[in-house]
Simulated assay, not measured.
Amino acid sequence: MRWTVPNILTVLRLLAAPGVAVAFLYFQRPYADWFALILFVLAAVTDWFDGHIARTWKLESRFGAMLDPIADKAMVIIALLVIVGYSSMSPWLVLPATVIVFREVFVSGLREFLGAQAKLLSVTKLAKWKTTAQMVAIAVLFSRDIFLYHLLDRTQGMDAATAGSVPTGAAADGAGVLWLAQMRDVAGIAGVTLLWIAAAMTLITGWDYFRKALPFLKEPA
């Protein structure tokens, strides 16, 4: 293996994947959410940079081709587990997350079974858009929880009547609660919507890979 810049970035992205979950073991919220969001976004950015650098500088390698999709899947799956776990198992998140994880495991199994023929399941443009949608959705959902915890911090000590009257304009918003509540709602709706879009794209690309693999799954005559 050559320790080229793209390979180093890919390895760092792979190591960052468990860091997203570990952050919640050592930091209080919302600091854990901030750490996870920053780490996830940096890792997602390196996903574009390592591929771009590898193609531009002619540094493509078999090691990078093998590890890059593994790092992407590790980042997405671990981040989804964290988000779903801290969402009280909301069905709006559990269902698309389940679809995404199932597809990733299924396609990985297909590639392993096909062996030398696995090149038939090369990454398509739609699959790349699928990965982008997943990562954007996850980043937005992390930001939703950041807004939520800052909102809870600013409303701490308020009685229920005062906290409820601020959004309606009946009480002055001296603590900046209203915009936090609005951003939490916007990020929540946008994040869930993007995750469902990513899940739909995940199903389409998964079916496309399965269709291409079907001839190799038939029993010999």
Rank of each mutant, 00 (worst) to 15 (best):
194 L>Q: 01
37 L>H: 09
109 G>P: 03
116 A>P: 00
147 F>K: 00
90 S>F: 04
72 D>V: 14
211 R>W: 06
48 W>F: 14
177 V>G: 00
56 T>K: 13
53 I>K: 05
200 A>Y: 06
12 L>H: 08
32 A>L: 10
29 R>L: 15
112 E>D: 15
6 P>D: 15
209 Y>E: 01
38 I>P: 06
60 E>A: 12
116 A>K: 03
15 L>E: 10
69 P>A: 04
165 S>Y: 01
68 D>W: 05
8 I>F: 11
209 Y>D: 11
206 G>S: 12
34 W>F: 13
124 T>S: 14
173 D>M: 00
181 A>D: 11
198 A>Q: 08
201 M>D: 13
11 V>C: 07
203 L>K: 01
49 F>H: 03
122 S>F: 14
79 A>R: 04
219 E>L: 15
152 L>M: 08
190 A>N: 01
139 A>C: 06
23 A>N: 04
181 A>T: 03
53 I>C: 13
65 A>Q: 07
25 L>Q: 13
20 V>D: 11
121 L>Q: 11
182 Q>Y: 07
171 A>P: 00
143 S>I: 04
21 A>L: 05
159 D>T: 11
122 S>T: 15
54 A>S: 06
38 I>L: 14
156 Q>Y: 04
1 M>D: 07
111 R>N: 05
112 E>F: 04
212 K>N: 05
121 L>M: 00
108 S>K: 02
99 V>E: 02
188 G>A: 13
177 V>N: 09
197 I>E: 09
61 S>T: 13
206 G>A: 07
93 L>Q: 04
79 A>G: 06
24 F>C: 01
111 R>F: 02
139 A>T: 09
